[in-house]
Every structure is written in C-alpha cells, then in structure tokens.
C-alpha cells in the first residue's frame, strides 16, 4: 500500500506541472494583462511600459513561466500583481473559510442525500420514490445564486433568523452551506439510490430477510455497507472540489473564500495568484482522491483482501526466488 501511495504522489508531479502550464499559458492568451487593471486612466504609454517592466510582463512568456516554476520548486509562489502580498499568504488567509464552508456543505449534502437515496430505493417505483428524485433534481436545477438570494430574503430579511452574509460565526455559515449542499445532493442522492437498488436485490439480503432479520438492520448493516463504494467516490469528488470553492455562492453571501479569490484574480489578470491558487486546489483535490481510494480498503474487505493478496503474492514470489537462488 505504501508503494501505491508513493506512486500516486509521484504521479502528482506531472499533473501539477500540466496544470500550472495550462493556467499560465491560457491566462496569457486571454486579452489584457494586470497593467490594464492597475494603471489609472491618465497613465501614459510610457507609464504602462514601466509597470509592465516592473512586473516582468515585458519578458517572453516561456521565460516568465520557467522563472515562476523555478521559484515554485523552492517554495516561493510569488507575489500578487495587485496587492504585492505573497500569494501563499493570501491563499492561506482564505483557504480555512472555504474549507469550512465546503465541509458544512458536504454535511448538508450527505445528511440529506443518504436518507433520501435509501428511502427512495426502498420505495422504488412508488410515488414517494418519484417525489424524492424530483426533490433531488430540484437541488441541482435551481441556480445557486438564485437559491441563495431566496434563502437570504426568507431567513435573513423576512424572518431575521440568520445573517445575510459575511463569515462571522456559525450562524453565517448556515445559508451558504444549505445553498451549496442542496446543489451537491442531486448526484449523491441518485448514486445512493441506484447503488442501494443494486444491493437490495442481492441473494444474501433475501437470505437475511428470510432468516427474520429486521428491515432496518438489513438496510443499515448489510445493504448500506456494500453500497458505500460508489457513494464514497462521489463524496470524495465533492470533497476534493470544495477548495475550488463555490464562486457564485461565495459572492452572494460575501464569503471571503478561495473561489472568489480566484475569480477576482482572474478578472485582474493576476497570474501568480491564479496559478498559485489553482495549483493548491489541484493538490488538495488529488490528495483527497488518493485518500478516498485508500478508504475503499477499509470499507470493502474484498479490496483490502486484494491488497493483502498482492502483498502476500509478492512476498511468496520473493521467498520462491530466494529459495531458487539458494
């Protein structure tokens, strides 16, 4: 397993190189640069050229990219063109907010999707199943910014129960988490339902029921555990994506997160900030996916057994080789 983890981590290097290359070059292809944002209206062409020179934007793209990567491997993500602050500082300032919002959204999503998916699968083909699926689909269909504004109007303005925005304490987390969570629940609910449907038709569950095991135990103990692999995959993907942030929701709720940072920086052509933030989110995404893969082994004994077999197989092979050489 350690070799597997190491291999996956090594594979991360070309992924990060590819991502940084794409982001850096695509940003350069887009019309405009940071000087257009920084320069005042009355700046002369000479002023603009001086600013380009100061930011290093007058150098060829490849040279700029190589310099950036050379600094990056030494742990220096550069400075924002706009604020002059180190990219790492700006990113790390926003990342906890986004992670918090992401986890809260995931809790909402999982908390709604699992019961709804299981309920739906148990009542497959009935009107209750259809209603559950429509509810899940609504979560996906309603645009986040619209749902966010509706929730804000209802819970902040009309009822006055919750704040309308900002990142001040638990109460301000609720509305954005519900907004993102309901958007995430559609995929998870449908995956839970189809995965459960596959499992509850299996012979061993029929046997369990025949032996008089209660339906609740059949579902919780026997069916759900075996249906978890695809569900974990979806949760893992969603978890990996949370650092990228939910840009619209962060904007609507004035949530100071990474998503908003990336989009604002993108609009300002702040290449070091955009590239640095995307590299960090890619790393996070890849590590979470790796952890999800490892989690399979703990959830599903068959996968664990595969690891064990491979390990055992290899050690047996080694023993045989040693014997042969002896």
């Amino acid at each position: 397993m350690y070799r597997y983890v190491l291999k996956r981590l090594v594979l991360l290097i070309p992924v990060l190189l590819g991502v940084s290359f794409l982001v850096y070059f695509i940003l350069d292809l887009a019309p405009g640069d940071a000087v257009d944002v920084l320069a005042p209206d009355d700046a002369t062409q000479e002023d603009r050229e001086r600013m380009r020179e100061e930011l290093g934007l007058n150098r060829p793209l490849v040279i700029r990219y190589l310099d950036y990567m050379s600094d990056l491997v030494r742990g220096d993500m550069g400075e924002s063109y706009l604020s002059g602050q180190p990219v790492w500082d700006s990113f790390i300032e926003k990342a906890p907010n986004t992670l918090l919002l992401g986890f809260a959204s995931l809790v909402v999503s999982v908390g709604l999707s699992l019961p709804l998916g299981i309920y739906s699968a148990n009542r497959h083909g009935t009107w209750k199943d259809n209603v559950s699926m429509v509810l899940a689909l609504l979560g996906l269909s309603i645009p986040n910014f619209w749902l966010g504004l509706l929730l804000m109007l209802l819970f902040a303005l009309r009822l006055g129960w919750l704040p309308s925005g900002g990142a001040d304490g638990f109460a301000s987390l609720i509305l954005p988490a519900i907004t993102i969570g309901t958007g995430m629940m559609a995929t998870l609910t449908r995956t839970t339902r189809s995965s459960m449907l596959d499992v509850i038709r299996q012979d061993y569950l029929r046997t369990a029921r025949a032996k008089g095991v209660s339906e609740r135990v059949v579902i919780r103990k026997h069916a759900l555990k075996n249906a978890l692999i695809p569900i974990i995959t979806i949760i893992g993907t969603q978890l990996g994506g949370i650092l990228g942030g939910a840009v619209l929701t962060e904007s609507v709720f004035s949530w100071p997160g990474v998503g908003r940072l990336i989009v604002d920086s993108l609009n300002s052509r702040d290449t070091p900030m955009v590239t640095g933030a995307i590299i960090m989110t890619t790393m996070f995404f890849s590590v979470v996916l790796l952890l999800v893969d490892l989690l399979y082994a703990f959830v599903d004994p068959r996968i664990k057994a595969q690891y064990a077999t491979k390990k055992g197989g290899k050690s047996n092979d080694n023993k045989q080789k040693q014997k042969a050489s002896a």
């Binding site: 900002g166 609507v252 004035s254 908003r260």
Partner: peptide, 18 residues
C-alpha cells in the same frame, strides 16, 4: 469597508441592518 460584490445581496444586508 466591506467588499460585497453581489449588488442585491448588499442591499439585503442593508435592509437586515448588517
């Protein structure tokens, strides 16, 4: 001075007193 990019949400925050 608080950055609130979404115009409608900014106005709602004024109405709620935030």
């Amino acid at each position: 001075l608080r950055y609130m990019p979404e115009t409608s949400a900014r106005l709602i925050s004024l109405e709620t007193g935030e």
